[in-house]
Design a protein around this nucleic acid. Structure first.
Lengths: 209, 209
DNA sequence: GTATCGTTGAAACGAACGTTTTATTTAATC
DNA sequence: GATTAAATAAAACGTTCGTTTCAACGATAC
């Protein structure tokens, strides 16, 4: 239970944005949920948009920083190791606390949010990370054409985003047959699938224009 | 150029919803774009929510119907054939016309939309399709545990959703190195990657609770 | 020609939105 | 204890939203 207003706003915003969407969450319901005065949003942050940005950056920045740390610690890594460096910070951050699932949908939806002012900054925040991971994968798989590497990292990101964004979908399919609270099991499933996809043969012809 | 009001509304709604998001698109800007009176939305459809549902179903129903057709036409199919039956209707519908890319983001975001009234119906619409494809994949890969099959179909859906939802992301990465207007090339990339992931070994232990 | 039904046009409704303003409270400094 | 600055509270701002109302229009059937 956070004690100060700013944190309470961030926590409530995270919860409500991810469960109802950003545009569907009013500052009135948000401040009511946070037990905070309505004007607090525009006092501590300048606007609702700035609050949205703060909510996202609070979670994404540590994840991306950790990704780069893990990646740079590897020497001649396998694709499994590269994927672990990419997936693990997100999976662990999301499933760490009880609020994790809340963060998950938020992150998962980041990649496909409409062309808001927000999207631009999120993409800029991801661009550097993606660039470095593309290079690393290309080095690990010199036989795969560059364009195909791009496609396949794109797919890897989709796996992560969809795993976070549509948890309830797979849970509905599984009906208890899947353990969603074990980060290692989820990581193993994702890395096993994605590494096999990255290594796949048969698309050696570059589909460049 | 559609001539009647109802179609003009559906087309404009499809365009604006996918580019700006549903909540961020007002009926005023929508009817202005469609060159239609404001009251037309509540006359032809009952509400904005019903319009949203109509927009989605107009695209999703033919795709899902075609998926089931293609799947049922296969006998003892390979995973490549199953994935083709799942991916092809969506890819071809999305890239068919000039408005295809517009539809893409809309479909891509369906899977991770917040818990609206909309999401429930979309999920119900997808549930039957998913169930049949799970069965088919399980039959093609008897060695893979059922829980793992669920995870991996989940990943396959994520690949599709993210390919549609975040096209501009990969295009920004690729800078012209990728041909996004060739359905067959996209299908090949997706199927090559996903089929290798589906067949992957190493996750034989079921992560059931 | 007149009545009828489906459709469109223009205006208005009440509600909810993000934001701003003005007071009041709280806490630290001298 | 008075002074100052930061934080909270309460109220109002103007705007925009989805929806409704009611009048006008156009075609078809009598």
């Amino acid at each position: 239970m956070p004690t100060d207003t700013k944190e309470r706003l961030l926590d409530s915003a995270e919860l409500l944005f991810s469960s109802q969407g950003i545009a569907n969450t009013s500052l009135r319901s948000l401040t009511e949920h946070a037990k905070v005065n309505l004007a607090a949003v525009n006092y501590h942050f300048q606007s609702k948009d700035a609050l949205v940005q703060a909510v996202l950056f609070r979670r994404m920045n540590p994840i991306n920083q950790r990704r780069l740390e893990l990646l740079s610690a590897l020497q001649n890594p396998t694709v499994e190791q590269i994927l672990d460096a990419f997936y693990r910070p997100a999976v662990e951050a999301v499933l760490a606390g009880p609020e994790g699932r809340t963060v998950a949908r938020l992150i998962g939806r980041l990649y496909s949010e409409p062309g808001d002012l927000l999207a631009g900054q999120v993409r800029a925040l991801m661009a550097e990370v993606i660039r470095l991971f593309v290079e690393s994968i290309q080095r690990a798989l010199p036989g795969v054409p560059p364009a195909t590497v791009l496609w396949r990292l794109h797919f890897c990101i989709g796996i992560l985003a969809h795993t976070f964004g549509a948890m309830q979908l797979i849970e509905g399919m599984a009906r208890g047959r899947i353990a969603y609270d074990d980060p290692e099991a989820i990581l193993r499933q994702m890395i096993t699938f994605a590494s096999a996809g990255l290594r796949a043969e048969g698309e050696s012809t570059c589909a460049a224009s």
